[in-house]
Design a protein around this nucleic acid. Structure first.
Length: 429
RNA sequence: GCGAGCGUAGCCAAGUGGUUAAGGCAGUGGUUUGUGGUACCACCAUCCGGGGGUUCAAGUCCCCUCGUUCGCCCCA
């Protein structure tokens, strides 16, 4: 092995896997386009301050996971590889005055994100997200729409064993009240909490709720629920979201202890998890972030969004589906004239919409047939000296082993028929 | 940042401290060269992630290091 390897936590997506990515991208694009969401592409690095202010200084993402470095400007500025997509989209929204167009911005994005964490199943340092942001609506229907689109995408890909978990974290005021109540409740148990949670009691008590420590969980069991501390607006909003989801026949489970790790969330918070992943089971996470635009010095604008972890999604896809053969014809040829004609034929068939692989090995027919078999082509085209001399080609259907001689011009004249036959064979695969 | 496991060819993988490092898949060439997945033959690791140590002797034991996997924290 060479001495230069891909960096820890990064990986190459090789051709045998890339079909899954294309499938996900195509499916998502179709669903998003129908819902009239528009793609937006923002830089993969930004000023560090954007993330510090947007995501929150106290969060783990900002505190210990950012790829931050100085650039070559004088004086150098601190830049960071984006750890998530929302902050950049909101920055553009403000900087390019997208709000001036009025109405609601429905945006989506996809691309690499970077977090300096230790890799494990479903977690890398460079990973990819597909995300959606609806900026400019506080309406519960926006929450429901966004969730419905996420479930549509996942369902269209044929994923099973997924669960939607829902919570509301209220607005800032609700959370302050709740936070106080929680601290009041937990303080008497302070000594019994796990060390991490003791730490968090002053910094970020909400997160004690989903600690995995056994004793801490027991204590958290009886802690006050945030749902009891929602003000009337928050409560109504949340109830409306639930009702809308029910109307859409989207199943969900309430979890008052669902707390998301980024500071900017308000009201609706949700996760979609899978039974079939390891410890990192969340495929999609999101929620409402009504305060973020204002916090980044834009006009006070409500927003909802989510992000899907593409690596996790593809892990699931690989568990349940085999990609079907994309190859229509494998072209076998031998002899100078035949090889030349085979190339021409392959090109012409491609122009007619077929996928065609030309055997370039120059080895014997037997080996070429073996490769044709392995290529999982629907049919094989054979051109040898005889065929070259008579301007014909042998067409062989791999599944049935039926073979017929046919004039090259006739073959090219019957492309509609061929497409139909290939589709028939493919359907029976 | 922390914890545990693992590191033998492109991939999977065997290998009580003792001489030339099983096997399978894939690959390449061939079986007197025009018909395939499941025939046969040959070739395919001077070397067991790297470094140091113990020993007459190390892929096999010890230490360090790097990589990797899974988990913790947290998240997608």
């Amino acid at each position: 092995m060479g001495d230069i390897q891909a960096l820890r936590g990064t990986r190459d997506i090789l051709p045998d896997e890339v079909g899954y990515w294309q499938q996900v991208e195509a499916t998502a694009q179709q669903i998003l386009t129908r819902a009239v969401y528009q793609e937006i592409r923002t830089p993969i690095f930004e000023r560090t301050e954007l993330f510090e202010r947007g995501i929150g200084e106290a969060t783990d993402v900002v505190g210990k996971e950012m790829y931050t470095f100085s650039d070559r400007a004088t004086p150098p500025r601190s830049v960071t590889l984006r750890p998530e997509g929302t902050a950049g989209v909101v920055r553009t929204f403000i900087e390019r005055s997208l709000y001036a167009q009025g109405g609601v911005q429905r945006l989506w994005y996809t691309g690499p994100m970077f977090r300096y964490e230790n890799p494990q199943a479903g977690r890398q340092r460079q990973f990819h997200q597909l995300g959606v942001e609806v900026i400019g609506s506080a309406d519960p229907r926006a929450d429901a729409e966004v969730i419905a689109i996420a479930t549509d995408i996942l369902q269209s890909l044929g994923l099973k064993n997924l669960h939607l978990t829902l919570n509301s974290v209220g607005n800032l005021e609700d959370r302050q009240h709740y936070r106080q109540a929680l601290v009041d409740y937990l303080t008497p148990y302070q000594d019994q909490l796990d060390p991490d949670s003791q730490e968090r009691l002053s910094r970020n008590p909400l997160r004690i709720l989903d600690s995995k420590d056994k004793r801490t969980q027991e204590i958290a069991q009886n802690a006050p629920s945030i749902l009891d501390y929602l003000g009337s607006y928050s409560r109504q909003h949340f109830e409306k979201v639930q009702q809308l989801l029910s109307n859409l026949e989207i199943n969900y489970q309430l979890n008052p202890r669902l707390v998301r790790g980024l500071d900017y969330y308000t009201h609706t918070a949700f996760e979609i998890q899978s039974d079939d992943l390891g410890a990192q089971a969340t495929v999609c996470g999101g929620g409402r972030y009504d305060g973020l635009v204002a916090q980044l010095s834009g006009p006070d604008t409500p927003a909802v969004g989510w992000a899907i972890g593409l690596e996790r999604l593809i892990l699931l896809l690989q568990l349940q589906k085999l990609p079907v053969s994309l190859l229509d014809f494998y072209v076998v040829s031998r002899g100078e004239a035949a090889e030349a004609q085979a190339l021409i034929l392959a090109q012409k068939l491609r122009h007619s919409g077929f996928s065609v692989e030309l055997d370039l090995s120059g080895s014997g027919f037997k080996k070429q047939f073996a490769r044709a078999e392995r290529s999982r082509a629907i049919a094989c085209l054979i051109i040898g000296d005889e065929e070259a001399a008579s301007q014909t080609v042998k067409l062989k259907w791999m599944a049935s082993k039926e073979q017929q001689a046919i004039a090259a011009v006739d073959l090219l004249a019957m492309t509609d028929d061929l497409h139909q036959q290939i589709n028939t064979f493919r359907a029976t695969q």
